[in-house]
Amino acid sequence: MTIMQSFTELVHQRQQRESAKRNRPVESEVTKLDVRNLNFFYGEKQALFDVSMTVAERAVTAFIGPSGCGKSTFLRALNRMNDIIEGAHHNGTVLLEGQEIYAPDVDVVSLRKRVGMVFQKSTPFPKSIFDNVAYGPKIAGQRNHKGLSEIVEQSLKRAALWDEVKDRLQDSALALSGGQQQRLCIARALATNPDVLLMDEPASALDPASTSRVEDLIFELKQNYTIVIVTHNMQQAARISDWTAFFYQGYLIEKDHTQKLFTTPKKKQTEDYITGRFG
């Protein structure tokens, strides 16, 4: 059970770090997102089976599970990114603060402004760093240049990128390193001021140093945002998340406090997965 012990250690370390920082309890209990009996299909193929889950506000929830088990699908269902995919359909409910996001009268655009998303592969627009970050506020109607600069600066600071790029905001975003590009994408998502931030393996293409910066960042951000993150790295899940959900073949097997899930998993499959017996 050495693996279990090492996880316990990680979680414990984190708790210490956290309580040193502030006096808030580790996990908040206010429900931000409430998903009930979600079935999701790509055409004929069913990708999610009857998933029910709540996501707590101002906390980090991590999704783990073997490749192809539906983590990304579930994540994208939370801000209706799947709408773009041809033939995708679903049944069940997804409530954001008690409102059904798939209701016919819901405006996807305003939904996505509240529920931002960062992708696995960084996707900077082929424009300047400034324009990348300013894009969201600009399309939302913010025209005033001074206001935009302020938002850009704050977002870049929050994404821990400001110091590296403040002298070259007009340079092309494609000239940044991979890690910087990913933080730029996070800054870009923050600039629209969302409540919820969905991250699909945000650190999987990064080197260890960049990864740890992004992890620090997530840790800071959870004070203001609800964060849902998909990760293949279980140490990472243990390090940064408050809650962890384990998916397997389209089913949600188990969701619990990170500490509990990693130390005393209720299901056999979960235990097998985190101890590395399959996946």
Binding site: V109, K113, T123, I139, A189
Partner: peptide, 25 residues
């Protein structure tokens, strides 16, 4: 298509995505 997806994820409408990202690219 990642450009389009990224733009939608920031709350852009379809026309805004086309007008500010796709056509310039």
């Amino acid at each position: 298509s990642s450009i389009r997806t990224a733009s939608y994820a920031l709350g852009a409408t379809q026309w805004q995505t086309i007008r500010y990202q796709v056509i310039p690219a």
